[in-house]
């Protein structure tokens, strides 16, 4: 039997007195798209940051392809090459053009030759229709373009797992679509992903599973069909109601 790509067991994390992750456990098979939903401050982002070692945690085990990442001697720089992450604020490197943004990590961390890396970059840019922006600087791109380049930058490393931390939260509504479309395409291609998002319709379309968190705990794990139509827990119902508007009678 194939091992799960990612296994998280009893993950605990606290800042000083406040415990933000209270013993989370879940697994992720290859090709899974896990959407993590929940109110702000419930620990979603922290969870992602723990998975690729940007945030230290107090206890628990994270396994990637069966390998314990908390074991001594694990090199996070190597782990992170397999785990791509995209942030809300895109954070392209402003002093480099699009191509150099894409080439930096494969060249420095994977030791790829310039021609090899450029070919990879060109085919990715081609695929999302940004090939003509290769020499543009981040400040010359729209928010949606920047975020797509940021996604490509992570894909350049050929990661096995992609983490998306509210990647559309800072974008104008019109830009959101192009970014979500790209993510949906990745999902269809079989990329394993963990997506933190507030775009509930997108979540329903993309997710193979929804993990609902509140106050540092997993409240519910369901298939998207169940979660969005008949959530098992009251807390999830309450949360989903936020996205639902009812037309009220006008008083006057």
């Amino acid at each position: 039997m194939d091992v799960n790509l990612l296994e998280v067991e009893q993950l605990r994390k606290s800042y000083k007195d406040a415990e933000v992750l209270k013993g989370l456990s879940f697994t992720l098979a290859r090709g899974d798209v896990l959407v993590v939903a929940g109110p702000s401050g419930c620990g979603k982002s922290t969870l992602l940051r723990c998975i690729n070692g940007l945030e230290p945690f107090q206890s628990g085990v994270i396994r990637l392809s069966g390998r314990d990442l908390t074991a001594p001697g694990v090199k996070w720089t190597e782990v992170r090459q397999k785990v791509g992450m995209v942030f809300q604020s895109y954070e392209l490197f402003p002093h480099m053009n699009v191509l150099d943004n894409l080439l930096l990590a494969p060249r420095k961390a994977q030791g790829l030759s310039k021609s090899e890396a450029s070919a990879r970059a060109a085919s990715l840019l081609e695929r999302v229709g940004l090939k003509d922006k290769m020499k543009s600087f981040p400040r010359e791109l729209s928010g949606g373009q920047k975020q797509r380049v940021a996604i490509l930058r992570a894909l350049m490393m050929k990661p096995e797992l992609m983490l998306f931390d509210e990647v559309t939260a800072a974008l104008d509504p019109e830009m959101v679509r192009e970014v979500l479309d790209l993510m949906l395409e990745l999902a269809t291609d079989g990329m394993t992903m963990i997506i933190v998002t507030h775009e509930m319709q997108f979540a329903q379309a993309a997710a193979s599973r929804v993990l609902f968190m509140d106050e540092g705990e997993i409240v519910e794990t369901s298939s998207p069909d169940v979660f969005f139509t008949f959530p098992k827990t009251d807390r999830a119902k309450q949360f989903l109601n936020i996205f639902h508007f009812e037309k009220k009678e006008r008083r006057h």
Partner: peptide, 25 residues
């Protein structure tokens, strides 16, 4: 802060993050 994080998240070493991302800026 996120400039550092983006660099680290790509698997770059601390030296590379400083030399290629932080110092030039």
């Amino acid at each position: 802060r996120h400039q550092y994080d983006s660099g680290y998240a790509l698997g770059l070493s601390k030296a590379d993050v400083y030399m290629s991302i932080i110092l030039p800026q």
